[in-house]
Write a protein that binds this DNA or RNA. Structure first.
Length: 725
DNA sequence: GAGTTTGAAACT
DNA sequence: CAGTTTCAAACTC
């Protein structure tokens, strides 16, 4: 669909890769001696390593993947999908064969890597990558998630984020060869990969999602293997080596603990020890990351959350379907899936973003020790953190961290892949991500807890108080957010519960039929509009905008009555508000900005001079802000929490970096491609190469139009904030 | 906690 | 599409 400039780009790196021993080895794995077509090699190249630039960089791949995978996720029953180009995506069962097919068809790297000849290997590979999204599950080591988040946020974090793992692995006695390979890979790609790692993650996540619940066993297994941060990476690498080699390594290192540990995890995943281990790992890792240069910061990982947010409703339905057709009988999973089960109500209700976080807290307080959450590992689609899953032995701070992590992870893992595969909610995820990041920044565990609790109780959690709507209308915040009501809700006659799944789904459909965007994020993050800087979008002062705009008459857009304000975004031309004084951006300001956007310099001046709008615009113009954190109704809390519009508040380093890369590289296109909810994916490293460097946005004002058109076309589900186009 | 205000959602 | 009603959150006391 899109031009893939990366092809040329990849070709150069390709030759290098081909020469590498690893490449040769990979080739040896495949019975097929493919004629080295450029395409094949290109795709293959990225394949073998975690960070493979070419695949991710290609918009084509992204788009391709998007549609294909989303569909797949929605239909778990389907053993395999056929991509638009006929590429076959194999399920675990077919992993052995598909690799060739993938190569032949030039499937994206991620796919290829997943489809290694032997299933175990494939799983191992997949897991590490997918685990990022899975982290939310109690059974998964959060650390990987953290890493991923960093990577995502960090435009160029690829090597940085990965290296630590490698080092860690080495310290733990992992195979030297593996380490070397990983490191080498990282170094090799560092310069060129950019954000590709991020894409990889996205891709893998998709794959993960695609895995039907039927694969839950394998999936779980893989997750277990990835529990340990070092292990995770290790697993990935391992997957690329022959089993014999691995076994050999095992024999040689018997008793060293690393592999044993992994095995142990696999064997006793349910065991408290494992849980403790995971929690401890998480805590340790988090501490490490906090002090690290790229430690999470507010809004840093927003992008990941965008597309990960899942509507519980759909999830449930999907899982149900899968269950019907499968023999998956994992009790924990089943219980979770079982709509009627009481435990499900509270635990299973995934509140997007902050809400999720709050739920976690609530659950934790309720049943701290044996949270059902940990059972939530449901296949690939919905992975829920053990909200309180932290083992009883965990220290308070650990718990907090864990919870925070859970919230973030769950958010991330959540997928909105619904029936249409398009609907993606991002706001909540963004908000949660932001929130979590902030929390992590808190030095004091107790403070963290307090903050979390406060946030959760006051704003984070989606709790409704519906009296008449039965929580089946958009009046209900829970319903509107795509989550089931939970215990903390004070609703009456609530039908928004798993028990009434059918009703919920039917109602939802009905509402969507009326308004397809009804469940879409109300606030669209900045990054989406950014490309439009040159266009109407720029007119609005706020980097993010409300989908429909507000209609405030008396609140002057200064209270939460105003959805724009609530979402932490400025009013836009779409707003019909009266007497707008929105601190995040005046509706009127937009006009000013618009007029002057023609000239970057002018705009900058304007920004500097204009109080409300100014803060937002400047950033916008120069580069896309991963506004995500502020992006949604739920997100708005975070925005408010920090008191100032996203624009205004200092962005985290990571965020900035991300922006620089993303914005400069016109990832927007990809974003558009992927539904708005797919913030992560949207970022395309490719754009880097494609588009000219620096401040593309600003410069694009003139030439951005073409790019913008692309965006508009590609994003059907999310109407552009600026209806003009 | 009760009552009021507000604006989105739903309805006509 | 506009006007009205319903609704629940946000806000105030």
């Amino acid at each position: 669909m899109m031009d893939t400039p990366e092809k040329t780009r990849t070709s150069s790196s390709l030759s290098k890769f081909e020469d590498s021993p690893v490449f040769n080895y990979i080739n040896s794995l495949s019975p097929i001696k493919p004629v080295k077509s450029v395409h094949v090699t290109q795709t293959f190249n990225p394949l073998s390593f975690a960070s493979l630039p070419s695949i991710f960089t290609s918009p084509h791949v992204s788009s391709h993947k998007e549609s294909r995978f989303l569909k797949r996720s929605t239909d778990p029953s389907k053993p395999e999908l056929s991509s638009a180009d006929g590429t076959k995506v194999s399920t675990n069962e077919e992993a052995g064969v598909d690799i060739r097919e993938s190569f032949d068809t030039r499937v994206s790297l991620g796919e290829v890597s997943f489809e290694l000849p032997n299933e175990p290997s494939r799983i191992a590979i997949e897991l590490p990558q997918t685990s990022k999204y899975v982290c939310g599950s109690s059974k998964c080591d959060p650390a990987p998630c953290v890493i991923e988040m960093n990577c995502v946020s960090e435009s160029t974090c690829t090597s940085l984020a990965i290296v630590p793992f490698v080092q860690e692995a080495s310290q733990k006695g992992l195979c030297d060869g593996v380490e070397v390979a990983a490191t080498f890979q990282i170094e090799q790609n560092r310069e060129t990969i950019g954000c590709e790692w991020e894409n990889l993650i996205s891709d893998t996540s998709d794959l993960l999602i695609f895995n039907s619940p039927n694969d839950s066993e394998a999936f779980r297994d893989a997750i277990q293997k990835s529990l340990e941060p070092g292990t995770r990476f290790f697993s990935t690498l391992i997957s690329q080596f022959p089993e014999d080699d691995i076994n050999e390594y095992k024999d040689q290192n018997e008793g060293t603990g690393e592999l044993n540990e992994i095995n142990h995890v696999n064997e006793s995943f349910e065991d408290n020890n494992v849980r403790n281990f995971v929690s401890a790992s998480l805590t340790d890792y988090m501490e490490t990351r906090m002090s690290a240069p790229y430690s999470m910061k507010p809004g840093s990982n927003l992008h990941r959350g965008f597309r990960r947010r899942c509507l519980d409703f759909e999830m449930l339905a999907a899982r149900r379907k899968s269950l019907d057709g499968s023999s998956n009988t994992n009790s924990s999973v089943d219980s979770e899936l079982e709509p009627g089960k009481p435990s499900g109500d509270s635990s299973r209700c995934i509140v997007p973003g902050i809400g999720l976080h709050l739920n976690a807290l609530a659950t934790a307080s309720r049943d701290n020790k044996n949270s059902k959450l940990e059972t939530l590992l449901s296949g690939t689609q919905k992975l829920i953190f053990p909200c309180s899953t932290t083992s009883n032995t965990l220290a308070a701070d650990q718990e907090t961290a864990h919870e925070s992590f859970l919230a973030s992870a769950s958010t991330e893992t959540e997928t909105n892949d619904v029936e249409n595969g398009v609907q993606l909610s991002e706001d909540a995820s963004q908000a949660s991500a932001y929130f979590i990041n902030e929390e992590f920044n808190q030095n004091s565990p107790k403070k963290k807890i307090r903050r979390l609790e406060q946030a959760g109780e006051s704003e984070a959690c989606k709790r409704c108080n519906c009296k008449k709507s039965k929580c089946l209308k958009l009046y209900c915040e829970c319903f509107a957010a795509g989550v089931y009501c939970i215990e903390p809700c004070s609703c009456q006659d609530c039908f928004n519960k798993p028990i009434h799944e059918d009703t919920v789904l039917a109602t939802r459909k009905q509402i969507e039929s009326r308004n397809p965007l009804a469940f879409a994020p109300k606030v669209i993050r900045t990054s989406d509009p950014i490309p439009e800087v040159g266009d109407e979008l720029t007119t609005t002062p706020a980097s993010a905008r409300h989908k429909r705009g507000c209609n405030c008459k008396k609140s002057n857009c200064l209270k939460k009555y105003c959805e724009c304000f609530q979402g932490g975004v400025g009013c836009s031309i779409n707003c019909r508000c009266e007497g707008c004084k929105n601190a995040f951006g005046l509706k009127d300001g937009s006009a000013i900005v618009e007029a002057e956007e023609e000239e970057e310099e002018e705009t900058k001046k304007i920004l500097n001079t204009e109080p409300a709008a100014l803060p937002t615009t400047p950033l916008q113009l120069c580069r896309p802000l991963p506004f995500s954190s502020i992006g949604s109704s739920s997100a708005m809390y975070t925005g408010n929490k920090y008191g100032k519009p996203n624009i205004i508040r200092p962005q985290s380093i990571m965020e900035k970096r991300f922006q620089s890369v993303a914005g400069d590289e016109t990832p927007e296109i990809l974003r558009a491609n992927s539904s708005p909810g797919t913030g992560i994916k949207t970022l395309s490293p490719n754009t880097k190469r494609i588009s000219p460097p620096e401040c593309e946005l600003g410069s694009t004002s003139g030439g951005a139009r073409s790019g913008r058109k692309l965006i508009l076309q590609s994003i059907p589900s999310f109407p552009s904030l600026t209806p003009k186009h």
